Simulated scan of single mutants.
Amino acid sequence: MEFDFEMLAADDRYKLLTSTIVPRPIAWITTVSKNGIRNAAPFSFFNAMSKTPPILAVGIQANASGGMKDSAHNILDTGEFVVNLVAHAVAEAMNITSVEAPSEVDEIALAGLDTLPSVKIFPPRLAASPVVFECKLHTPIEVAKNQLIVLGEIVHAHIDDALILDAEKCYVDTPALHLIGRMHGRGWYSTTDDHFQMERPASFAYGRTKT
Score class of each variant (00 low, 15 high):
Met1Ile: 13
Met1Glu: 15
Asp4Gly: 02
Glu6Gly: 14
Ala10Ser: 15
Leu16Ser: 07
Thr20Ser: 13
Arg24Glu: 11
Arg24His: 11
Thr30Leu: 07
Lys34Arg: 12
Ile37Pro: 03
Pro42His: 04
Ser44Arg: 02
Asn47Tyr: 08
Thr52Gln: 14
Pro54Arg: 12
Ile55Met: 05
Ile55Leu: 15
Gly59Ala: 04
Gly59Leu: 04
Ile60Tyr: 03
Ala62Pro: 03
Ala62Lys: 08
Ala64Val: 06
Ala64Tyr: 11
Gly67Met: 13
Gly67Pro: 10
Met68Cys: 09
Asp70Glu: 07
Asn74Pro: 05
Leu76His: 08
Asp77Glu: 15
Gly79Met: 09
Phe81Ile: 04
Asn84Leu: 04
Leu85Asn: 00
Val86Ser: 00
Val86Ile: 06
Ala87Tyr: 05
Ala89Cys: 11
Ala89Pro: 07
Met94Pro: 07
Asn95Ser: 12
Ser98Glu: 05
Val99Trp: 12
Glu100Ala: 06
Ala101Asn: 09
Pro102Met: 08
Ser103Leu: 09
Ser103Ala: 15
Glu107Ile: 01
Ile108Met: 05
Ala111His: 12
Asp114Gln: 12
Ser118Val: 04
Ile121Asp: 01
Ile121Gln: 01
Phe122Leu: 12
Glu134Arg: 05
Glu134Gln: 06
Ile141His: 09
Val143Trp: 12
Lys145Gln: 13
Leu148Pro: 00
Leu151Trp: 04
Glu153Ile: 06
Asp160Phe: 02
Asp161Gly: 01
Ala162His: 04
Leu165Ser: 10
Leu177Trp: 07
Leu177Glu: 01
His178Ala: 10
Leu179Thr: 00
Leu179Trp: 00
Ile180Pro: 05
Gly181Glu: 05
Arg186Pro: 11
Gly187Tyr: 03
Ser190Asp: 14
Thr191Glu: 07
Asp193Ile: 07
Asp193Asn: 15
His195Glu: 12
Ala202Val: 12
Ala202His: 15
Thr209Leu: 12
Thr209Lys: 14
Thr209Val: 11
